[in-house]
Amino acid sequence: MYQTTIKKSVELVGIGLHKGSPVKLRLEPLEAESGIVFYRSDVDVSIPLVPENVVDTKMATVIGKDGYVISTIEHLLSAVYAYGIDNLRVVVDADEVPVMDGSSASYCMLLDEAEVVELDKPKRIMRIKKEIEIKEGDKYVKLSPAKDLSYDFTIKFPHPVIQEQAYVLKFTKQSYKEEISRARTFGFLHEVQYLRSKGLALGGSLENAVVLDEKKILNPEGLRYDDEFVRHKILDAIGDMSLIGMNFIGNYEAFAGSHDLNHKLTLELLKDPENYEVIELVGEELRELEKAYA
């Protein structure tokens, strides 16, 4: 199994969630061993996707370098990671990635248009060897050894529409596209009003998020899945875990997980080489992984 990139450059324009301004995004092929690299064309700054470049995780995963940042990268990265793409240049002309419809479906369509192609270097996979957990109060995120990749997420909100939801994704690219990619980000009306008073979430609307007041969903079309909220949390987690730098084999589990906890989990994983091994798959494992990303 070989490293991948995209066959051709593709681009789109969408609204930035926080500034509310149009953002042009372009995906470009990169050669093997390049990794995922973000580039801000407006200030001529490249920001490699590595954990040490994460500068904020309060409301989204934000990377930065030399005082310049790119925000809300997790939905795009979720799709890139689900497609098994190892090498890619992401060019934006602003400080955030377009929010599109609040899910990763638009990015899946963009990657389908770009086409995934193999390069001439073996693909590296991380196998989780030890259980690693980050816990804060009753919230936790955890990685544990497994023979395949799965995401097991539970959320609990004191809201009549959400309450407690749990979902387990047995990962394949196809299951991701069908079960996860269309799940939108969500927020509460009082939070949106507060953020806007601070000059944030100016691009947020019912077109790119599920918004709830104290009792109900405000979106006239309703939900895409009955449990869209927890499915979106899995979408976010897949994007956040891309900071590991490669696809992995193991089980991810969370209760009330967040961008911040996911970032701390990647740091905890990577700080001790005894937690994992980097492998090039052969035999049955290779065939199973090839099927997962087909």
Rank of each mutant, 00 (worst) to 15 (best):
Y225Q: 14
F188Q: 12
E113S: 08
K19I: 04
H232A: 05
I63F: 08
T185A: 03
H259F: 05
A94Q: 04
V80L: 11
A254V: 01
E274V: 00
D138A: 03
Y68P: 04
T154Y: 05
R182A: 09
A201F: 01
K24M: 02
S71R: 15
R224W: 09
D86V: 02
S106K: 07
H18C: 02
L200E: 01
L169K: 10
E280V: 12
V54E: 14
S78L: 09
S9L: 13
L77M: 15
F157A: 03
Q193G: 00
I132S: 03
R287T: 07
L143N: 01
K233D: 04
S21R: 09
F157K: 05
E221K: 00
A237R: 12
T266Y: 01
I47E: 04
F171M: 14
G203L: 00
K123H: 10
E277M: 00
I36E: 02
A82M: 14
D120W: 08
E164K: 14
V116Q: 15
I244D: 03
Q163C: 08
V90K: 14
M246Q: 07
T5E: 09
V54W: 13
K264H: 11
L25W: 13
N87W: 11
G16Y: 04
K135N: 13
E118S: 15
R124V: 00
L12Y: 01
S41P: 12
L110S: 10
Q174Y: 11
N251K: 13
K142N: 06
L202S: 01
K8M: 13
S242F: 07
L110D: 05
A256R: 11
N87C: 15
V10A: 02
V55N: 08
V116H: 09
K58D: 06
E253W: 00
V23R: 00
G84P: 14
F153L: 06
N251I: 07
I180Q: 08
K139H: 15
D93N: 15
L206H: 09
M126G: 00
D226M: 14
L110N: 05
Y194L: 02
S78F: 08
L111Q: 02
H232Y: 06
A256L: 09
F171S: 12
S205N: 03
I234K: 06
E52F: 03
S205Q: 01
L202M: 07
E290F: 14
K173C: 10
D272Q: 07
